[in-house]
Design a protein around this nucleic acid. Structure first.
Length: 423
RNA sequence: GGUGAGGUGGCUGAGUGGUCGAAAGCAGCGCUUUGCUAAAGCGCCGUAGUCCAAAAGGCUACCGAGGGUUCGAAUCCCUCCCUCACCGCCA
């Protein structure tokens, strides 16, 4: 959520900072400012009346204590009631309206974020390794089915399209990856492991920015009061919602595994083959909470922590920076990490590392006590460390051997218990 | 699911219709004094909104949340949420 003061005091700057996103928000900002002016006028008038009421009521108390007649004053206070009632209702309505509009306004991209419209405009920041030379690479679906690792037909039978069932060694590989990733981040990168609920309250979804704007992409249950988590970012970042956290703990670093549930509304037919776009997939998420002046460097470190996953597994990848038009709703700056998948002849996004600055913390009222004793909003960041399904794709397609078996990277072998997967 | 108790400031905890935004203690901050690692005394010490060009300051709201009664609500009434205890059920 953006700061209403910024919008009020520098509306033109606010509009220009949002202009590079792929939608025009200037009308929304104008609407917010009109409501804000109206709201404040109502509140000022109401507060004047409240002040008058309080003053008169104290007079009444004094008169009654002295056994004197207070009927005239009581009538006077009563005469204020109608207008106060009307102003209270008006102020509340305007306040709700203002908040509703503020919640659908995206974050400001950082000034240095490259301006662009779509994914093609995202600059490549760095590349690690090289594409392996594999003659006539098979894709992961062919490899996994041949080896009996997944059972797509039965997944459809029990849950419909967009779900997967891992079987036997395939299931074990998934479990091995989870343990490998959590160990890497907690042991080598200093993150605290968190195992959160996979269901969260509506407020949490608003706090991290999924709601109210993207409800059609979420799985709501219990009449809309609870949601299946679309990412561990939601329960983990919200752990400290409505808190004033101790700055001595900064940066707070959490790593969490959850399955991620996404409707993927409107994406039917896009990348739907195999494991690449699913309604449920596993992910390790890294979350940081820190002071504003730390967040820029923490984003670089976070991205590096996610990259180390791919380095440890010997996978070729690149890091791109998202342009203004491609960035997510709450993002101030985002790096995507894309791993090479020979069977797709394409890079697959396996991690998205984002600095939200104070966008989420305003929504969830997450603050810390600054050195000047003021309560300030924290900065929050998160990044995948990494998504499992696409990493799984990359492992199969990069590890494939001419005989149809799949080589398991050395770092993963202790977790998987074997160096290859074969029939 | 049943019964009972309860939700007050960073913490403990008073307060059952009128100078209560809220006693007291603890913690924290500042000053003074004495001095071997601390003690005593004094003072300060919630959050948010709003008014003012800003500062100073004023005003308003907040005692789990939302309504209601009243001239006036932390205090009375209603609904909801949550916590604790015991019982039931249960991986």
């Amino acid at each position: 959520m953006l700061d209403i003061r910024t919008l009020r005091e520098q509306p033109d700057l606010a509009k220009s900072r949002l202009a590079s996103r792929n939608a025009d928000y200037s009308q929304t900002i104008d609407a917010i400012l009109a409501i804000d002016a109206d709201r404040r006028a109502s509140e000022t008038r109401l507060q004047g009346l409240q002040s008058e009421r309080n003053r008169l009521s104290k007079e009444i108390g004094k008169l009654r204590a002295q056994k004197q007649d207070s009927a005239a004053l009581e009538a006077e206070v009563k005469s204020l009631a109608d207008e106060m009632q009307a102003l209270t209702e008006k102020s509340n309505a305007l306040s709700d309206e203002q908040t509703a509009l503020l919640l659908v306004l995206p974050n400001f991209p950082q000034p240095a974020v490259p301006v662009g419209k779509e994914a093609a405009d995202n600059p490549e920041i760095r590349v690690h390794g090289e594409k392996p030379s594999i003659a006539n690479p098979k894709d992961h679906v062919a490899l996994a089915e041949a080896l009996g690792l997944i059972d797509p037909d039965r997944a459809v039978k029990i849950s419909g399209s967009g779900f997967s069932v891992y079987m036997g060694q395939g299931a074990k590989l998934e479990r091995a990856l989870l343990n490998f990733l959590l160990d890497l981040h907690t042991r080598d990168h200093g993150y605290t492991e968190v195992s959160p609920p996979f269901v969260v309250k509506r407020d949490c979804m608003v706090g991290t920015g999924q709601l109210p704007k993207f409800e059609e992409d979420m799985y709501g249950i219990d009449g809309g009061g609870l949601f299946l988590v679309p990412t561990a970012e939601v329960p983990v970042t919200n752990l400290h919602r409505e808190e004033i956290v101790n700055a001595a703990q900064f940066p707070i670093k959490y790593a969490a595994y959850t399955p991620c549930f996404r409707r993927e509304a409107g994406s039917a037919g896009r990348e739907t083959r195999g494991l690449i776009r699913m309604h449920q997939f596993d992910k390790i998420e890294l979350v940081k909470i820190c002071a504003p002046e730390q967040s820029a460097s923490e984003l670089e470190a976070l991205t590096g922590d996610a990259e180390r996953v791919l380095q440890a597994l010997g996978l070729h990848y690149r890091v791109i920076e998202l342009c203004t038009g491609d960035m997510g709703f709450g993002a101030a700056k985002t790096y995507d990490i894309e791993v090479w998948a020979p069977g797709q002849n394409a890079y697959l996004e396996v991690s998205s590392c984002t600095n939200f600055e104070d966008f989420q913390s305003r929504r969830m009222n997450l603050r810390f006590k600054a050195e000047d004793e003021k309560n300030r909003f924290c900065h929050t960041l998160n990044g995948s460390g990494t998504a499992l399904a696409r990493l799984y794709v990359a492992l199969l397609e990069n590890g494939q051997q001419p005989d149809g078996s799949v080589h398991i990277p050395a770092a993963l072998q202790p977790y998987f218990g074997a160096s290859t997967i074969s029939k």
